[in-house]
Nucleic acid binder design. Structure first.
Lengths: 160, 160
DNA sequence: TTAAATGCAAATGATTTGCTCTTGG
DNA sequence: CCAAGAGCAAATCATTTGCATTTAA
């Protein structure tokens, strides 16, 4: 890999839409820009909030539909957080996740050693492999300091 | 030998409940047995179905509450499928996942090379790491053969 | 006994869908 | 023009919660 050089480069979207015979709409363009232009792993809801400033009429279901389209085009990957809200990852370079089970944050990190590893035979023969990601879970530093309760014992957890 | 050799070894549950001061109920016991005794990564719904044969009065919400309790006790890990239903992994040994984005199956596989790897500094300093899992996604052989449609293009996907 | 746990039913909240109107090509 | 896409509202469906009843300790 060379260098990241990321300006919200819309050519990937243009290209993907053309190949698939899909129209290039204002909504798709802005959504794509928002996805690749900002870090983190936003949910559909968050993207909707942010984009309303630019496209006041944008509806939440269009965000959902567009994200599904992007996913089918391979432009984003829908990832699942410890929370039950879907989050979207538009970072095309191989990277891995640090997942905090307390605050549900997801941080990217790179781990070249994993990227370079060869899949074991069992996995290599499984089917068509599209990607590999390591998920490291635990409690982030911020949460460790903030709340020092040892374990979240009984039910009544998941304080939405 | 006179050792009973409990197939689904419930001692981990007993131990965990005692430490946490939780009661040992019929429901918890059976749910735990079902979890560790059968392979795969069942959803709450599936577990509920299976257990109704043994405990006809078992309610779905008890399954949810109990699974949340088990998770807090560290007995299972709630994993997220490409689908938006939560699945539960009670396999305590380190293992990794093969996720089919088409049929949403999740298969375990072992990958010692990853287990033996050291975390990069960024991850090591992130917080309290509880586990590491590699997620390999793609299309399983069965799905590749079955449906040979090239890509799932427009929306209207997610055929529940 | 008695706080914890279950079951039931109703609530919640994310995601999806039917249908009509709008718009890109 | 005219089918693909967007918007609106209503529907779904997994998951959660309030409350009365049961039960493990």
């Amino acid at each position: 890999m060379t260098r990241p050089v990321v300006a919200p480069d819309t050519s990937r979207l243009q290209e993907a839409c053309r190949r698939a015979g899909l129209r290039m709409t204002h909504q798709r363009l802005e959504l794509f820009r928002e996805l690749v232009g900002s870090p983190g792993h936003p949910s559909a809801e968050e993207l909707h909030q942010r984009l309303r400033e630019r496209i006041p009429t944008l509806s939440l279901d269009t965000v959902y539909r567009t994200l599904a389209t992007f996913e089918a085009l391979g432009l984003v990957r829908r990832i699942s957080s410890p929370d039950h809200v879907a989050r979207y990852d538009a970072n095309p370079s191989p990277h891995h996740h640090l997942v905090c089970v307390r605050c549900r944050s997801i941080e990217d990190f790179s781990w070249p050693a994993v990227d370079e590893l060869e899949l074991p035979p069992r996995a290599a023969g499984w089917g068509l492999v599209q990607g590999v990601r390591a998920e490291v879970w635990g409690v982030c530093s911020a949460c460790r300091q903030r709340a020092n309760r040892p374990v979240r014992l009984p039910p009544e957890n998941r304080g939405r």
